[in-house]
Amino acid sequence: MVFRTFPLFVRNRGPDELWRKRRILKLSAHFHGRSRNCYSIAVRAVHRALVYATKARALKKEDMRALWDARLTAACEEHKFSYSLMRESLSRCNILLNRKVLTDLAIWEPRSFKSLVKLAWSRASQDGLNGVKELGEEPSGVITRGMIK
């Protein structure tokens, strides 16, 4: 490039301005008002949006976990069992199903979930966990053959 004066040379930012700005404006296409078209306003909004997106990745996981917990509590209460006891009993039986899978079973495979609750209840009353007696008599029909230890 040919610069006729030294100040012009120093002030030159380079030929890539269009591409740098286009990269930002591509991300602000769905924003409101001037934030989607004017670069200096868009760049601030885009940076905030990206920061929120970064922070939200952990929050999404937290939210999903809280939802699964709420759903599983509801599903256990329906069978008159306690969610905390169920988790403890299942881990003692070495049934390492996570919250996501348990929720899917509770919603789409309710009979399987019921049998899991029954199994957990048997194990909890066998181990004498805190709070099992208050729930009443354990359900019948669980054949363990002494294998859940």
């Binding site: 939802l67 709420a70 759903r71 599983l72 509590t73 509801a74 599903a75 209460e77 329906e78 929720t103 509770a106 919603i107």
Partner: peptide, 9 residues
């Protein structure tokens, strides 16, 4: 609706 396993906020 927190007594249902299909609960959603």
């Amino acid at each position: 609706g927190l007594h249902k396993p299909i609960y959603g906020p």
